[in-house]
Computed example of a mutant assay.
Amino acid sequence: MNIFVVNSGSSSIKYQLFKMPSDQPICSGLVERIGLQGAAITHKVYRQGEETRLERQLDLPDHEAGLQEVARLLSDPEIGVIRDPAEIDAVGHRVVHGGESFAATTIISQAVKDKIRELFALAPLHNPSNYLGIEVAERIFGRAKQVAVFDTAFHQSMPEQAYRYAIPNALYTEQGIRAYGFHGTSHKYVAEQAAAYLQKPEAKLITIHLGNGSSMTAVEGGKSLDTSMGFGPNSGLIMGTRSGDIDPSIIFHLINQLGQDPKEVSGLLNKKSGMQGLTGYSDMRDITNALEGGSPEAELAYSLYAYRIKKYIGAYTAVLNGLDALVFTAGVGENDALIRQRVCRQLEYLGIEFDEEKNQQRSKGIREINTPASRVKILVIPTNEELEIARQCFALLE
């Protein structure tokens, strides 16, 4: 079964094509910096153990332009891996917010699309991109089954004390206002990888997904017990353009004292805050360059970013009543050694002892960056949301 996986982020599209049940992709790629200067595609094709790599810089104003370019590469006469889009049996889509309507992988119908649209307001940076990916894929891969895998599904195991808010009960029972959590596909995948690596199915883990969007999850026995994102994906950690946790009084101040309307406040907190608000940049690589150039704004931003993560480590260690491993994943978590260093320093009281030399090394698989004496493992595990999505699609359709 040929399953093409589309993972549309706020400024990126990751994709992989699998011939299931094999876990090895036929091709994969990344479209990044969509809508920003220097948008680029990295496309890889795998044949007989050999990798062919193509890199291009393009003007990609939006996600539709990016996905159209990906479709062209899939059937390119020279490097294509399919002759015709009709060869794709299923397209698996990452969808960020499923509300209380979707707790499992779902074949996409018009009713499902309508519900995803209804949830735009809860995930304004992602659900519109996810929806657009579905619409474009339906046109390009007309024969394929379109399947949605929801980020919120993994966190359905959270206990009520973790997902409820201290607001009038009717707002939950009638409006569904509760914490849903996100990045569930990534947290599930790396938690399973970590438990297998530790040879401990009931492992107590804190999974730390750091990308343009970021979140942390307390996991025990493969189940989510708590997570930093809530009703929408703006709570918790500091992110590329999102504020993360703030005092709700700030929202009232922006509206009542500064005269902003709710739409302006939403745009401010979702698209103009986080690292963008602190430094003028949303991409961590740009902020790193600014830091190396002596920028005090970049220095402060790094400190705030790491400090927020440390606070959640302390909170989730308490929730779990112990800890077997910290797991860093996603673009920043896997590649930014400085962030990992700033997070992991001075956590010895929790049994977390960090090895600077190991932290600077790179590898494609799971690696430890803790000292041999550390009671808690510090793991860097590359996430593979696309493989997890393909597995869930295959399980649904086979």
Rank of each mutant, 00 (worst) to 15 (best):
E388Q: 14
K271P: 09
L58A: 03
Y131L: 15
L237C: 04
R56I: 15
H63D: 09
R178Q: 14
V332I: 15
S109V: 01
Q156E: 14
G49N: 08
K200L: 15
G222V: 04
C344W: 08
V219H: 00
S157R: 04
K115S: 11
E356F: 12
V81P: 01
M229I: 05
K272S: 14
N270T: 13
Q199A: 13
L132I: 13
L291D: 06
G240Q: 12
V6Y: 00
I107N: 00
A290F: 08
S215E: 11
T241G: 02
R285E: 11
R53V: 15
A137F: 09
S8V: 14
G240H: 13
G213W: 13
N234I: 15
G259W: 09
A170Y: 10
I352T: 10
A306Q: 06
A121I: 12
E202C: 02
T217Y: 11
V219Y: 03
G49E: 06
Q346R: 13
V45W: 05
I41A: 05
L122A: 04
T52N: 08
Q156S: 14
H187D: 03
D151A: 08
N212K: 05
I339L: 13
I208T: 08
A298T: 02
D114C: 01
K223D: 07
Y165Q: 05
G365L: 12
M239D: 05
K310Y: 00
N212S: 15
G277C: 11
E220I: 13
Q37I: 15
R367P: 02
F4I: 09
V219K: 01
E87H: 07
F394P: 06
I13W: 03
K19E: 12
D62S: 11
L397G: 01
S12G: 04
M284G: 03
I208D: 02
Q276R: 13
P296K: 08
I3A: 06
